[in-house]
Write a protein that binds this DNA or RNA. Structure first.
Lengths: 340, 340
DNA sequence: GGGTAATAAGGTAGCGCTGTCCCAGGACAC
DNA sequence: GTGTCCTGGGACAGCGCTACCTTATTACCC
């Protein structure tokens, strides 16, 4: 029966566990939370009693009494990107076994929406937050600061010692792509991007640096589309680029979706890849290895970032000082046929 | 400063809102919850006061006092499948504006894990649950039943009047694929599947029915791989199938990932699609329209299912009897070059 | 052996809301 | 004018936990 209107939950409470194990509720609470001042014999008794009753602590009561929940808020700019799915999954894997609840906020690459999410999620008194990158509104930054909720930043590396970050250097990734294309003999290099978030722009920056160093800067070969990235858009941008600059012989795409679209478009148009133009993607999504030809891409440690960020947060909560405030997990250029 | 150890949250409380607006806390509570027994003038005063203080209700206190939270638990079998991402996103879109929190549980196509998730999430006293399909352990079913939490089932259609479902007929989808391939003149039809969840098996069933009705049953042309589906696997299964049964001239893949892998493999092997063999996918992921050749696929109303399920749940919570307990949102066969 | 210091357990009192009574006062019928 | 309803608003208590303080009990030193 639905107990609508009832004030009790019908579930076993801490008091019942305490009664069954012959201790006071506080001792039971401490035993279940693993607080060391309880005698091992009692701890065992309490745990047995809890198990036999099927007791699960009421998170609402817990949060109310301690002014701190066991929720971790994760803010990501997009769900439709496979990238963040892998990260989320890894975060769950680390936090759930530790009894943490994961609240996901998708702000659709919109600073105002992120701010709003932060304001709302603060009401849940989260015990920690995992944020994507460092780029956010001043108001958002202030709310985070004022709340005192521990934060870990994902995907980028911060410059300050205070902000904890787990990720890799987006600039270096851009540099690696450019270097690889130059080393394989390409001379007219293009950068094609959509969804111009800060990380994309950092990769662009790295790419530009290497071109400049090699005396091969070509700002006219940069295609920066503000709209959401997609396979279809990748095909269009590729066609546009080739029409505009037929001498292009190497392209770095800001993500694999665009690159996949371009590869398929090249197939349709009969453009030889890598013969006429080499392509490099970013993220190394599962499909990249199976494209025709297989796509060279920069493999990003998406799952590792999620795991690392979650673990760093747990360490913060345990009061340990996090050893490295800037955890660089690197990336890997996976060279395949599309760029040889 | 982190207020570790403090018992209060430092955030404005209902009592402060009440004081500022000159009413009692209960009246303030009622006003903010939109309970009609409060005079309009007072309601406005309370809302103004709340806004000026930046008051956001403490969900933990709320859940504790009413023995019911504002969380909705969504259980899905996989996150790595784009399919469920679209559904989740739509659910969020409907529930967040109504002040509901969405808790996501991914059970990785594992019944025991789903059961575990249900047990744990019950502690949050969710006000509703959105479930994927009907296939779950008896223990899980019993917990759901006993808890009295309103449930809506997604993706499949139930047979009972009591279980509320929003989805489409998986069997009909399988039938549609088979019918289309037969109508375009194909004679030796294969079914290729991985990740054999109940919905995949229902599509298989529909596919078989039509073949049987046309006297074209070919059980030897069914490839059922239990492992997780992926692009790579699609390619492998396609090669295997072609080697084993060179006379196959039409294939229905249980999802687009497999079909994409097969299309790419066909390109590599120089197998003419649709000349030698026609292909039909399922889900119509964004990439399908851009494949070479473009992939015929069955477009599933993923977002609509999420929206519909969330709205049905809201209706249930408002005490409205849901008009249709079985909401069939249909599907659409999108015919493209791969099957013509 | 008495004093101090640690240690283990419990008592008490909320955390911030809302369900459940209850009461005041106006509308209405007789 | 009295009784009955209804309606808007408030008092009260308690949801199930944990922070804080207090009290027993032991350990250990000089």
């Amino acid at each position: 029966m639905t107990r609508i209107g009832s004030r009790t939950t019908g579930r076993p409470t801490l008091a019942e566990v305490a009664r069954l194990s012959g201790v006071s509720p506080i001792t039971a609470s401490r035993a279940l939370r693993g607080i060391s001042t309880v005698a091992p014999a009692l701890v065992e008794k309490v745990i047995t009693a809890a198990a036999s009753l099927g007791y699960v602590a009421n998170p609402a009561a817990r949060a109310l009494a301690s002014a701190r929940s066991h929720s971790v808020v994760v803010l990501i700019p997009s769900l439709s990107n496979q990238l963040f799915i892998d990260t989320l999954e890894a975060i769950h894997e680390v936090l759930r076994p530790r009894g943490m609840e994961v609240l996901i906020g998708n702000y659709h690459y919109d600073a105002a929406e992120e701010e709003d999410l932060i304001r709302n999620y603060m009401a849940y008194q989260p015990c920690g937050m995992l944020l994507t990158g460092f780029d956010r509104s001043d108001a958002a930054r202030q709310m985070l600061q004022a709340s005192g909720v521990p934060c870990v930043h994902m995907m980028e590396l911060g410059d300050s010692e205070k902000a904890i970050s787990v990720g890799f250097s987006q600039i270096e990734a851009g540099r690696a792509a450019a270097r690889h294309l130059l080393e394989s003999g390409r001379k007219r290099l293009a950068f094609v991007a959509a969804q111009l978030d800060p990380r994309v722009m950092q990769r662009a920056e790295g790419f530009r640096q290497v071109l400049a160093e090699a005396g091969k800067s070509a700002p006219e070969l940069e295609l920066l589309a503000p709209q959401l990235s997609s396979i279809g858009l990748g095909g269009e941008l590729f066609s546009d680029l080739l029409a505009k600059a037929p001498d292009v012989d190497g392209i770095f795409f800001c993500n694999d979706d665009l690159a996949h679209g371009a590869l398929l478009q090249a197939l349709r148009q009969g453009v030889d890849v890598p013969g006429r133009v080499a392509m490099v993607g970013f993220n190394d999504l599962p499909a990249s290895a199976h494209m025709v030809p297989p796509l060279t891409s920069i493999r990003t440690p998406r799952a590792a970032v999620g795991r690392g960020a979650a673990q760093a947060l747990l360490a913060l909560l345990d009061g340990k000082q996090v050893a490295v405030s800037r955890q660089d997990l690197g990336f890997e250029l996976v060279v395949r046929e599309s760029s040889c």
